[in-house]
């Protein structure tokens, strides 16, 4: 069930961090930070996942599905919020897509059968923003807590998604 990093969409998506000498040189050249291959064969081994991690990654997919559903729910309740936060919802969907793609064996099929919780709360216009913010924060918490349980590209992805959601939380405040 485990996927080596080399077979995962996670592979190769990391940019090398800037160094003290290259940060400004890279920016001066008008380029993004230099891209390199993510990791070598050693990291392929380190990024292998255990059966427990497979389950945990599927759980993180579910967390993100719940968040995407929360965006839909909040937007249905508040068209004003839908206009203001459409970009955030798009980003949450991008995160879900990447999580699904990175899950060993690809959990998309399983996710489509389980989907978000069937017992959805009722959200009204007045409470839509606060509701959504709580859901974003909860998802960020969940991904941050899961991140250290993984290694390699999956740890980086979960950490990045969590950080991105923290940024969204701030925007919704």
């Amino acid at each position: 069930m485990s996927d080596p990093l080399s077979a995962s969409p996670v592979a190769g998506m990391l940019s090398r961090p800037f160094t003290r000498r290259t940060l400004f040189a890279a920016a001066l050249a008008g380029t993004a930070l230099a891209m390199v291959g993510c990791t070598g064969s050693d990291a392929d081994v380190s990024d292998a996942v255990t059966p427990a991690q497979v389950d945990q990654l599927a759980a993180q997919v579910q967390v993100q599905e719940e968040l995407v559903a929360a965006y839909d729910r909040a937007f249905a309740a508040s068209p004003e919020l839908a206009l203001a936060a459409a970009v955030l919802a798009d980003q949450a969907r991008e995160q879900l897509d990447r999580l699904r793609a990175a899950a060993p064996g690809n959990t998309a099929a399983a996710a489509s059968t389980t989907g978000p919780s069937a017992t959805a709360p009722v959200v009204d216009a007045a409470g839509a923003r606060a509701y959504l913010r709580a859901q974003v924060a909860a998802a960020a918490d969940a991904h941050a807590a899961a991140c250290p349980d993984f290694t390699g590209g999956r740890a980086a992805m979960l950490g990045s998604i969590s950080a991105g959601l923290r940024g969204q939380d701030g925007q919704l405040a």
Binding site: S15, P17, F18, A43, S46, P148, D149, G153, G159, A163
Partner: peptide, 23 residues
Amino acid sequence: GTATAWTWVLDQATERSTRELGV
């Protein structure tokens, strides 16, 4: 740039405590 450096740490880290610091 700082964020890029820390995602690289998350990718490379072998210690759980380092990943906690990284996130």
